[in-house]
């Protein structure tokens, strides 16, 4: 489902003397259906960068990033938007929502975006929020006022609302207690079982070992940091 071929990336800081910072070269990755691959490497090695490139959040300077049939490195914004709506899910570490929207609607939104009815989308949202132990009295409130851990779980619920064929997970179990951690891992297992291709960053080693089929150390793509 995901095939990353010989990608490179650098940042040019125009306002700091046009310094060019190469952050990746020769990046390679391939993830099959139902497979979960963990990105590893020290902090700053480029795990998040690669993940953001796959998501289209960072531009790719060279190489190909195939997600399904689409080369994200060359796709138009509209193609990437369609890909994100239907195929490519992303659970980031940060929740970015319109401040006033109720948690229930935040979680239901990805389903609404693919055309599901409001009732159906909300049912699924309720199910996920209950599974992730978000107290029901909070569902009508905006998650912007929640604790870090609660926000993280809302983010996960939102990421798993629509059964994306491809999922990118950035530290999905960070700052979760044991119960919720187990729930998240179960959600990931479920997704794998239905054939979802997953790329994740897990500092939680036990989690990594439990659900990941392979590890890819991105350090070998990091210019000047090759192990």
């Amino acid at each position: 489902m995901i095939r990353v071929e010989n990608v490179s990336k650098s940042f040019t800081l125009h306002n700091q003397g046009a310094v060019v910072i190469p952050v990746m070269s020769g990046g390679e990755l391939s993830v099959a259906k139902g497979e979960c691959v963990a990105l590893t490497g020290a902090s700053g090695a480029g795990k998040s960068t690669l993940m953001r490139m796959i998501y289209g959040n960072y531009l790719t300077a060279a190489g190909r990033i195939m997600v399904g049939d689409l080369d994200v490195a060359r796709a138009s914004p509209r193609e990437i938007l369609m890909l994100r709506r239907h195929v490519l899910g992303y659970v980031s570490q940060f929740l970015r929502v319109v401040p006033r929207v109720a948690t229930l609607d935040v979680v239901a939104e990805p389903l609404r975006a693919v055309g599901r009815s409001e009732a159906e989308a909300r049912d699924r949202a309720r199910e996920l929020l209950a599974q992730l132990n978000i107290p029901e009295r909070l569902w009508q409130l905006s998650p912007t006022t929640f604790s870090g851990g609660e926000q993280q779980r809302v983010n996960i619920a939102r990421g798993f609302a629509h059964p994306y064929p491809v999922l990118l997970l950035d530290e999905p179990t960070a700052s979760l207690d044991a119960t919720n951690r187990a729930t998240v891992l179960a959600l990931i297992e479920e997704a794998k079982a239905r054939g979802t291709a997953i790329v994740g960053i897990f500092h939680d080693e036990a989690a990594r070992e439990q659900i990941c089929d392979r590890e890819v150390d991105v350090t070998r793509f990091t210019p000047g940091m090759a192990a």
């Binding site: 125009h14 306002n15 289209g56 959040n57 960072y58 914004p77």
Partner: peptide, 18 residues
């Protein structure tokens, strides 16, 4: 120009970066 989050998170032009 580009995807909103891409332009904001990975701005290419000096002015956008500023």
């Amino acid at each position: 120009s580009g995807l909103t989050d891409q332009v904001l998170d990975d701005p290419q032009h000096g002015y956008t970066q500023l």
